[in-house]
């Protein structure tokens, strides 16, 4: 930079027009790493995320929880992973919309409606998107576990399980295999195995395994795992230490 300025000053006035212009540009996005993962069961849903917050190769925080509980008696849990400033903003604005809904309509916002609300909020910024992978977890109208996943501009789907963020590509095939039993056959009949609901204990074990493996091979994942569990009794939290290197 300094040499470029020096050359410009030393050049004769007539050559100024041929000097290369210096371009300045502000980048409104950055990547804060981290990974999230959600699995739904018969009467519960879990949403887990690691608590590491990074920029580049630096660790900004080893404990910056990214899984948020929305306000209400029958709470939903949500995480918007990617660019954390956008993620925090989306969740804060969503929490306010959910709170106002309960005051205006005198009933809690259902998981299905919350998912549609998130879509309109994300698509509302279609031309300057929130740079996040969003996952919503809770219970549906029938009390069954529900997981909704979103792309940055609001395209969404209800699923059995979904990983998002930095190590999503490492975890997702593992989930296909262990939750939806993809590529597995019954040894007796040779027929493909049919996926059934997992117990909460098995789900939590699977989540811990998935994050331990992702931590081993991905530098942006580690420190602590925060597992939030929604049941009819509300939200409970469990912490699990991950490797800190």
């Amino acid at each position: 930079m300094n040499t470029m300025f020096a050359e410009q000053f030393n050049e004769p006035a007539t050559n100024h027009s041929t000097a290369a212009p210096i371009e300045h540009r502000f980048n409104p996005y950055s990547d804060n790493g981290g990974t999230i993962l959600a699995i739904s069961g018969a009467d519960y849903a879990v949403l887990a995320g690691d608590t590491r917050h990074i920029s580049g190769y630096s660790i900004n925080s080893r404990f910056q929880p990214r899984v948020h509980t929305l306000p209400g008696e029958k709470p939903l849990i949500v995480s918007a992973n990617g660019f954390s400033a956008d993620g925090e903003t989306l969740v804060r604005r969503l929490a306010q919309r959910v709170e106002w809904y309960s005051y205006n309509h005198n009933k809690p916002l259902s998981a299905k409606s919350c998912a549609r609300l998130i879509q309109t909020m994300l698509y509302g910024k279609r031309m300057f998107p929130y740079y996040v992978a969003t996952i919503l977890a809770g219970l549906d109208e029938n009390g069954r576990g529900a997981v909704y996943s979103f792309d940055p501009v609001g395209s969404y789907e209800r699923e059995q399980c979904r990983a998002g963020g930095a190590a999503a590509s490492l975890i997702m095939p593992f989930l296909d295999n262990q939750v939806n039993l993809k590529n597995q056959v019954d040894p007796a009949t040779g027929e493909p195995k049919i996926a059934t609901d997992l117990s909460l204990e098995d789900t939590v074990k699977l989540v811990k395994d998935a994050f331990s493996s992702a931590t081993e091979r991905h530098i942006q994942v580690g420190d602590y795992l925060e597992i939030k569990i929604v049941t009819k009794d509300g939200v409970s939290v469990e912490y699990f230490p991950l490797k800190r290197d």
Binding site: M172, P173, F174, N183
Partner: peptide, 30 residues
Amino acid sequence: GMCESLWEPDLEPEDLFETISQALMNAQDR
């Protein structure tokens, strides 16, 4: 992601075949 979660030490040939096959198939499906 698959290998880090499925692989374990000292697998016998038949178990190693199952492990590597599941790792490959589920990875390539994504």
